[in-house]
Amino acid sequence: MDIKQLEIFVTACERGSFSQAASCMYMTQPNISKTIRALEHELGRPLLIRNAKGVQPTPYGKTVLEHAQTILKTAATISSLAVPDEQDSLNLSTYPSNMIARLLVDFYQTWGSAIHIEHHEGTVEEITDHVHQGISEIGIVYVARKQVATFQHILSHKKLEFVPLCEKSICVYVGPNHPLYHADSVNFSDLPNLKFMRGVRDFFSMEHHLETVSMGAIDPHVMKHVIYSNSDHAVTNFLLHTDVCNLGLNFMYKPYEQYDIKPLAVNGCEPFLQIGYVRTPERSLSPQARWLVDRFREML
């Protein structure tokens, strides 16, 4: 038995179905089911009643649920004690981003080498785990607007909060070798004909929620993803030297532009991605984290 098993079990009970739990835990439904069956096998008794409407705890499962919730709260408290030294460090986690990298350069030039910088890149799950574990003081993320409530529910288990800063729409990034380089925008109907490079595979990423934004104009499953990579360097080089394009936030901070890469607005796309940061609400932000958040807000 481990903390992850208990977290999955508690989430399944609270959400009432394996599919909802899978969405919350960034996992597949079969893996949720497999994990809970393994826990039931270890304990020797069934924890959940499964039916067509979903799942609910057995009488024994209700007892285990109460203890599991207590254990998770205690684990969250212990994790919150592992805070970085706020006096001489900036610890943050973000999505892969050239602009964040340049912002850290600004931070270094402003604060000097006396401040230790520790920066991690990853998915929403990895970013929030870093904040939860005390590895990072803040985590900068973007979340589809329709998923903010689910996201906040997940964070509540970890005693974290999401502070939104701005809403942005999506765009298509192209380089000089792309046939649409001289265009100003694209339609949703154009997207299935393009070759895309996709970054981090993340439940909260824009690709997972494109259908709700395009109002049925495009099924994201028919988009042609020819390359997958979590490397920002790979994305940049493919955009610069091939006819591959990339979905991204319609946000380019002019002073940080480094490459001949152009954003094309998607016609009819309203802002639907909330950009913000994750933090532990019980702690005030350190001066250096506050500087970074304020500077990032100005960029947005």
Rank of each mutant, 00 (worst) to 15 (best):
H209V: 00
V143P: 02
S156K: 06
I140V: 14
E118G: 14
I115L: 06
I140S: 00
H119T: 05
V172G: 06
G139V: 10
V200W: 06
S205N: 14
P192T: 07
Y142F: 15
E118M: 14
F196T: 04
F204W: 08
V141T: 09
I154T: 15
N177G: 01
V172S: 06
Q152C: 15
I135S: 11
L160A: 04
Q152R: 15
E211V: 00
L194N: 06
H153Y: 02
H209Y: 11
T150P: 10
V148L: 09
Q147M: 13
L194Y: 01
I140Y: 04
V213N: 07
V213E: 09
A149H: 14
L180V: 10
I127Q: 08
S189I: 13
E211W: 08
G122I: 01
V200C: 13
S189V: 13
A149N: 15
E161C: 03
L210V: 02
S169H: 03
Q152F: 09
F162L: 08
D184F: 09
G139F: 04
K195P: 03
E126H: 13
F188R: 11
H116S: 00
S136K: 01
V148D: 07
S205C: 13
I170G: 11
N187V: 00
A183F: 07
H182E: 06
M206I: 11
M206V: 12
D202S: 11
A144C: 11
V174D: 09
V148F: 07
S136M: 11
E125W: 07
H116V: 03
C166Y: 14
T123Y: 07
E207H: 08
F162G: 09
T123I: 11
G175E: 06
P164I: 01
V172D: 03
I140R: 00
V174H: 05
F162T: 03
I115T: 08
V186S: 01
V141D: 08
T123N: 13
H157D: 12
M197A: 15
K195G: 02
H208D: 10
L155C: 12
M197D: 11
H178R: 05
V186H: 05
H209T: 03
L180T: 09
E121D: 10
F188D: 02
E161L: 08
V143N: 10
I140A: 02
D184G: 15
S214N: 12
I127G: 07
I154R: 15
E207L: 12
P179M: 11
F188M: 12
I117D: 05
T128M: 15
E161P: 01
V143T: 10
Y181W: 04
S169F: 03
L210K: 05
R145T: 08
F203H: 09
Y173G: 09
P192L: 11
M197T: 14
G139Q: 02
C171W: 04
P176I: 04
S136N: 11
C171Q: 00
D190T: 02
H157L: 09
V172L: 06
I135P: 00
C171P: 04
H120T: 13
R145G: 03
H130S: 12
N187E: 05
R201Q: 15
N187M: 10
L191F: 09
V143Q: 05
T150A: 08
I138L: 07
F162A: 08
L191N: 00
H209N: 12
E161V: 12
S189W: 04
V143K: 04
H120R: 14
N177C: 06
V186Q: 10
F203V: 02
H120Y: 14
